[in-house]
C-alpha cells in the first residue's frame, strides 16, 4: 500500500488547476459556484473531491471540460493546465479534441446518461469513432472489446440492446465503457455509484480501480461518501461553498482532520460500533453562493468562530507537508 502510494507520488503531474473561478451570472445576482480553487493530479493518482450538494463539485468537473452550462455560467479566471497546456486558452474545436480523448467523465445517474433512442452499440461506437474511424466491422469488434473491459456479460448480444432493456448497474458499466473508450489520461467520476445498489457499487469501484492499475489513468472522484474516499482515493480535497477548505492525503485527512467542516463531516458519518439515538448533523445551512460572506464561509456554523473569522478569509495553513486547511485556528497567533 505504501509502496504503491509512493510510486504514484513520483509520477508526473498531468493536471494542474490554478485559482479556477466559475461564476453564474443571473439578472440580479452572481453565483460564485467555484471561487478560486487550486489542485493538481499525478498520473495514476485518484483525487477525491468531497462536499455536500451545491458546494461546487460538479461545476468544478464541468469547468475542467469547459462544459459549464451556457450562457449563464462562465469560467472567469484561472488556469487549467493539462500536460502543461492551458485548456482555457484553447478554441472550442481544440477543446473537442480534449473531451473524450484526454479527459472524460462518468455522470451520476446511469438511468438518464444514455440516449434512450439509440442502441448501446451505436453509442459506444460513436465514442470510439471520436478517436479513430474504422471499418464498420472493426468498429463492432472494438465496441465489443470496450464492453468486455467493463465486464459486460455477452457483449456481442448487448450491442443491439436499447438502454431501457438494461439494469442500472449495467448501464453504468456502459457509461464507463464510453468514458474509457478513447483511453483518456484523466477520468472525472461524478458520484458514479450514488444511484447504484451497495453490492453493485462495490463491484463498480473495484472495476474502476482495476482499470486504473492497468492503464495508469488518473481519476477525480467526486463524492460525499467518506467510505468511498477511503477505498478509492490517494488524496482528498474537501470543498465548501465554492472553495477547497482542506486538502491532503487520505491517511492524513482521516487521522487528523483539521478544518472544523471536515471534522463535522466525519462526525456525521454513522459508525457501526456506536449506538446513538440521533445521528450527528451539522447545524445551519451553507451560505448562498450568490451572497458569500467576506470572511470564512463556515463561520456561522463553526463552534470555534471568533471575530477574525468574520472579517477575513483564512489562507491555506500547512498542517503537515502535503496537508493544508483554510482555518484561522491553525494560525500560531490564534
Amino acid at each position: 500500500m505504501t509502496t504503491a502510494q509512493k510510486s504514484v507520488a513520483e509520477n508526473p503531474i498531468i493536471l494542474e488547476v490554478n485559482d479556477l473561478r466559475t461564476y453564474f451570472f443571473n439578472r440580479t445576482s452572481t453565483v460564485k459556484a467555484v471561487d478560486g480553487i487550486s489542485f493538481n493530479l499525478r498520473q495514476g493518482e485518484t483525487l477525491g473531491i468531497v462536499g455536500e450538494s451545491g458546494c461546487g463539485k460538479t461545476i468544478t468537473a464541468l469547468s475542467l471540460l469547459r462544459l459549464v452550462p451556457k450562457p449563464a455560467g462562465r469560467i472567469i479566471d484561472g488556469q487549467i493546465l493539462l500536460n502543461g497546456e492551458d485548456l482555457l486558452q484553447k478554441t472550442e474545436d481544440e477543446m473537442r479534441q480534449v473531451r473524450g480523448r484526454q479527459i472524460s467523465m462518468i455522470l451520476q445517474d446511469p438511468q438518464t446518461s444514455l440516449n434512450p433512442v439509440f442502441t448501446i452499440g451505436n453509442q459506444v461506437r460513436e465514442a470510439l469513432g471520436m478517436a479513430r474511424k474504422d471499418s464498420s466491422k472493426g468498429m463492432r469488434t472494438r465496441a465489443v472489446e470496450a464492453l468486455r473491459k467493463v465486464n459486460v456479460a455477452a457483449p456481442e448480444r448487448r450491442l443491439e440492446d436499447y438502454p431501457h432493456q438494461m439494469s442500472g448497474g449495467m448501464k453504468q458499466r456502459v457509461v464507463g465503457a464510453i468514458a474509457m473508450s478513447c483511453e483518456p489520461g484523466l477520468i472525472i467520476a461524478d458520484e458514479p455509484t450514488t444511484d447504484l445498489d451497495v453490492t453493485i457499487q462495490l463491484q463498480y469501484l473495484r472495476l474502476l480501480k482495476d482499470i486504473q492499475q492497468n492503464t495508469g489513468l488518473a481519476i477525480i472522484f467526486i463524492t460525499h461518501d467518506f467510505g468511498v474516499v477511503a477505498r478509492m482515493c490517494d488524496r482528498v480535497a474537501v470543498m465548501y461553498a465554492g472553495r477547497i477548505v482542506e486538502h491532503g492525503t487520505v491517511r492524513e485527512l482521516f487521522n487528523n482532520p483539521s478544518h472544523p467542516y471536515t471534522q463535522a463531516l466525519m462526525a456525521s458519518v454513522p459508525k457501526l460500533e456506536e449506538r446513538v439515538d440521533r445521528l450527528y448533523s451539522i447545524e445551519g445551512q451553507p451560505p448562498l453562493l450568490s451572497n458569500l460572506p467576506e470572511g470564512c464561509r463556515f463561520e456561522d456554523r463553526c463552534p470555534y468562530a471568533r471575530e477574525q473569522c468574520i472579517s477575513e478569509y483564512p489562507p491555506h495553513f500547512n498542517v503537515e507537508a502535503d496537508h493544508t486547511a483554510d482555518c484561522w485556528k491553525l494560525d500560531p497567533t490564534w
Binding site: 462544459l67 473531451r99 480523448r101 472524460s104 455522470l107 438518464t112 446518461s113 444514455l114 460513436e126 471520436m130
Partner: peptide, 14 residues
C-alpha cells in the same frame, strides 16, 4: 438539458 446530451458533449461529439 438532459444527461445524455451532456454525455454526448463529454464524448467530444461535434
Amino acid at each position: 438539458d438532459s444527461e445524455y446530451v451532456k454525455l454526448a458533449r463529454i464524448k467530444g461529439v461535434p
